[in-house]
Amino acid sequence: MVLETTVPFLQSVGPNLFGLFYTGPTICALIIGLIAGAIMHKTPTDGIKLNTSSWIAIIIGAILVAFWLGSFPYYGGLNLGPGFVAAVIGAIIGRGILGTKVKV
């Protein structure tokens, strides 16, 4: 059911999502970010605790860096490196989902 609905949508979207960014590299970046986040601890290890606002600040910082990078490496669509932002968000999500808890 999900495939029946998603595949035609993906076919209509194609590699370049609404002319903004390329979906394939962005999804791959998200997956590599998830893998990188999987080898992180979920809980703080040394008294350094980052709360929700800290993570939002990191994502905003990543978007700023991506804006200065431009649309590297595909040079099309939005003037933003979507792979870079997707990797950072993927690492944060991967840390939250797949990260391990520290045994105290």
């Binding site: 980052l50 910082g61 870079f84 950072v88």
Partner: peptide, 22 residues
Amino acid sequence: LKLIAYPVSFIMIGYGVMTILG
């Protein structure tokens, strides 16, 4: 240093992923 190193490591991972993809 600890407070800065951890968030910066995410940015470095992002750079690495971007280099891999291109």
